[in-house]
């Protein structure tokens, strides 16, 4: 399966676009799991939910990106609610939060998935926009516009969240809560409220990620399953909670997947993220850019 230089170039170029997209769909998890330590296995399911909401708004003529942005406040409230509930039922009671918290989020993911099947059926859904279905030709390469749009939004989103976490007071408080909760308490801040806020932001960002998901390709309710691998792969590879690491890890995954896709075919691609995840967990669980 020799790969010509031309094809490799194309694979890498496509991989970079894909990688930025993977970083953007993982960045919410990077906050909720990476920084807040919540075993949020329902993250990909919430993203798929966002994609379906975008699809729904698309039926009324909304542009997918506008729909994604409009969904953010709603998902913010959803996120605050989820964290509040998780905190009251599991985190506060302490012991055994691990097993039960995991089972809880696993169950929530399952409910969202089946709920989507009940509401929309198992068929694939998509959205329409001017930039979907057309390509940009650069030299001999043809880059689909939908990937370029997702790439642009992904970069903006990642940059905005990185700046927010490092340059605003609340952002720094979120990072502080991840590192030293007692210290924050001593400073008079309420860690639970900060975490609640952070989880809200993570969920809002996931709504926009969902909009990008359906721009990049058609979605189906069970799509969250393969994204468990992709998002956790990126977040673990990045080193928990590192935003720039998330971007780098997304690129690594995107390029590897794109190369495997072109050499071995589509049926092997889903295993790339999971394989990479297993390798990272087995060899260096603290990630490449870990604390």
């Amino acid at each position: 399966m020799a790969l010509s230089f031309e094809l490799l170039q194309e694979a890498v170029l496509f991989g970079v676009l894909l990688g930025c997209f993977y970083a953007a769909v993982s960045i919410g998890l990077s906050v909720s799991f990476g920084l807040l330590d919540v075993p949020h296995v329902a993250h990909p399911a919430i993203m798929v939910l966002g994609a379906y909401c975008t699809h729904l708004l698309g039926r009324y003529g909304w542009d997918p990106i506008a729909a994604g942005v409009a969904l953010m406040p709603l998902f913010f409230i959803l996120g605050v609610g989820i964290y509040r509930f998780y905190y009251e039922t599991f985190e506060k009671r302490g012991s055994d939060a691990g097993v039960r918290g995991l089972a809880f989020f696993f169950g929530v993911a399952f409910i969202i998935e089946v709920g989507l099947i009940l509401a929309f059926g198992v068929d694939q859904r998509m959205v329409e926009a001017d930039y979907i279905g057309r390509s940009l030709a650069i030299g001999s390469f043809r880059l689909p516009w939908r990937m370029l749009v997702a790439f642009g939004v992904a970069l903006t989103l990642t940059a905005a969240l990185t700046l927010y976490l490092s340059h605003t007071f609340t952002g720094r408080a979120i990072k502080a809560v991840a590192q030293d909760e007692p210290a924050l308490r001593l400073m008079g801040a309420n860690p639970v409220r900060i975490k609640q806020w952070a989880f809200g932001i993570a969920t809002a960002v996931t709504a926009l990620a969902g909009a990008m998901l359906i721009i990049v390709g058609p979605v189906e309710p069970s799509l969250d399953r393969v994204y468990i691998g992709r998002t956790f792969c990126v977040v673990v590879l990045a080193g928990l909670g590192s935003m720039t690491g998330t971007l780098a890890a997304g690129l690594i995954l995107g390029i590897s997947e794109s190369i495997v896709l072109m050499t071995f075919g589509a049926s092997w691609a889903p295993a790339v993220a999971f394989g990479l995840l297993l390798v990272v967990l087995g060899i260096r669980p603290q990630g490449l850019f870990g604390r």
Binding site: L102, W268, P270, F274, L277, L278, L281, G282
Partner: peptide, 27 residues
């Protein structure tokens, strides 16, 4: 493979086993 992993890391690794096994069988 997962002997050093605990909590969610172990659980996520087991999800990976499903997909890798399925991909192998599919091919």
């Amino acid at each position: 493979l997962t002997m050093r992993l605990r909590g969610i890391f172990f659980s996520i690794a087991t999800v990976a086993i499903i997909f890798i096994a399925e991909t192998l069988i599919t091919n």
